[in-house]
């Protein structure tokens, strides 16, 4: 096996593909977080709406990615390339993100919300000062799954004209070049691992220590 040799011989190409891959994933991630976390929060107050939206997310998630790319490519204004890739990947992120936000908000101890309300918090204050901070651990679990997922599925966008690491894998398959496949797959995994690690660092900053240790030692005050 000589995938290292392949990378050395094609440094320019590999760097271009990697940069494209990373920028697509990061763009999709930022859009998805803004869109789906907001949606998740908005539907958390309405059980029936939440059921419908989560159901829709599940359906989208079950469609094979290659057909979804193909379908959206034919939508006017999207076409071949980045736009279609972004739309489809954002749709894939819907299920894990909305689900985790919904689960996170629902997992918040009713007694704590009750206390906040009794202290005189408005609904917006309850959301921002209690429900969101307490939902972070569940939301972050969802974000980290999404990051890894998007990085992988992004390889399929090579079929609609994205010049990313998926191309190495695809061409490696058609040419029967194992080094090329391994090089592509390896870099994709490294990107996924790196992004996951970075999210782990962000998580440690955002999630309160009061919640981080909760799984080790149950909160005794609410007995």
């Amino acid at each position: 096996m000589n995938f290292a040799g392949f990378i050395c011989d094609n440094t320019g190409l590999v760097l271009e593909y990697t940069a494209n891959h990373v920028s697509l994933v990061i763009g999709v991630l930022l859009l998805s977080l803004a869109l789906w976390i907001t949606t998740g929060l908005l539907i958390s107050r309405h059980a029936r709406l939440a059921g419908a939206v989560i159901g829709l997310g599940n359906v989208v998630f079950c469609i094979p990615s290659i057909s979804l790319f193909g379908l959206f490519m034919s939508v006017p204004g999207l076409g071949l390339g980045r736009r279609t890739a972004t739309v489809v990947l954002v749709l894939y992120a819907m299920m894990p993100l909305i689900r985790s936000v919904h689960a996170g908000i629902r997992s918040v101890d009713a007694a704590v919300v009750n206390a906040g309300k009794g202290m005189g918090m408005t609904n917006l204050q309850l959301l921002l000062k209690i429900q969101v901070p307490m939902a972070w651990p569940a939301v972050f679990a969802g974000i980290r799954v999404t990051v890894v997922l998007i990085t992988g599925i992004a390889t399929m966008a090579t079929f609609i004209g994205e010049r990313n690491l998926g191309r190495l894998i695809h061409q490696g398959i058609t040419r029967g070049d194992a080094d090329m496949i391994v090089a592509g797959a390896l870099i994709v995994s490294l990107i996924a691992l790196l992004l996951d690690y970075l999210m782990g660092r962000v998580e440690r900053i955002i999630i309160s220590p009061g919640l981080r240790y909760q799984s080790l030692e149950p909160y005794r005050g609410s007995a």
Binding site: D109, A111, V112, N114, A115, G116, G118, M119, K129, I130, P133, M134, S208, G210, L211, Q214, Y219, G221, S222
Partner: peptide
């Protein structure tokens, strides 16, 4: 208001 279940905010000191 002191609630029956104490209800301290776990994410705050």
């Amino acid at each position: 208001y002191v609630i029956q279940q104490v209800g301290l905010l776990p994410h705050r000191t």
